[in-house]
Computed example of a mutant assay.
Amino acid sequence: MSDSNTTKFTNPSTFILQGIPGLEAAHGWISIPFCAMYIVALLGNFTILFIVKIEPSLHGPMYYFLCMLAVTDLVLPTTTQPKTLSIFWFKSREIDFGSCLTQIFFMDSFLAIESGIIAAMALDRYVAICHPLRHSTILTNSAVAKIGLAVLLRGCIVSLPSPFLARQLPYCRSNVISHSFCQLMALVKLACADTHISNYYGLILTLLVAGTDLFCMMLSYILILRAIFSLPTKDARLKTFGTCSSHLCVILAFYIPALFSMFTHRYGHYVPLYFHIIVGNVHLVVPPMLNPIIYGVRTKQIRDRLLRHIIEIE
């Protein structure tokens, strides 16, 4: 006789997102910092785009890459936070299977795109410091556009198999996803079939994209440091290295929570589930919030133009 409390699902059309299991009573309080960070991310990145657009002196490779980063930082948290906040506020837990796969695709794509843009910004710093006289001829508008297109295509192409593989799996265990958004690993755990291909592809994809980009950044900064240490005075070395400080902060803000989230999710079996989910949300909303603040505070041209614009409004 079957257990009346057990329901079998065969490829359900909708899934139920639990939010943060174990912390349901605190969803309202948890939503406050995440909502605040999401709003700051939207305002900050729109401000970066606006300042670069209205200031002709900022129409250069570094700021074009910064605009690409800002657009990515607008899309990335928007793929997950509206649904997460609707769960916290309105208990709107249902999500269509197609929408779930779409969310996975956009989230993975724009994580890869952001990683590629940060690597491209390292290339810009290398050319600006090691080949300053040729910077405008190497990183022309056409070259910047081609790099941006290549990063976009790479992000979409490498991320496309993940939702495709997930779609082929039969789901007959449950339709309840223990997460606040459609995360690939949380979804495939519900499949009643061998999921090794999906698991291994996700891990290889992450390591390949992050590994390639981190290698390019490491190589760029080795060459940058070699050029900096060849400068004659300490002041010149510090001033030149200071031009890289914003980019280094962006690297740390993106990769530390991303890698921490990936490894705790895959190997942190003794870490509470709610901690996995909170870290997953943090790594999607905190870097987009911090990036415009970092560049706004540490980049004199952006800071001065923003202050001037505020004074003009007043």
Rank of each mutant, 00 (worst) to 15 (best):
L190S: 09
S230G: 09
F260C: 05
Y171S: 00
M107K: 02
F263V: 02
M62A: 08
A119N: 07
C249I: 12
F254V: 15
D3H: 13
C182V: 05
P161A: 00
T299N: 03
L111K: 03
Y221C: 10
S2Y: 14
H179D: 04
V127I: 03
L205C: 01
D304S: 04
F260V: 15
Y270M: 15
H283L: 01
L111Y: 03
I277W: 00
P232E: 06
E312D: 08
L66D: 04
T47F: 05
Y201H: 06
F65N: 08
C130M: 04
F275Q: 07
I48V: 12
H276S: 01
I16E: 10
K234A: 12
I256Q: 15
F215Q: 13
F90W: 10
C156F: 09
I113Y: 00
V52E: 09
L307C: 12
S198W: 12
L307Q: 08
I278A: 08
A253S: 15
I157N: 02
H196A: 03
I313T: 00
S180D: 10
I30S: 02
R266G: 05
V52P: 12
A120R: 01
L160C: 00
L307M: 11
V297W: 14
K234R: 09
A145D: 04
F215L: 15
L17V: 12
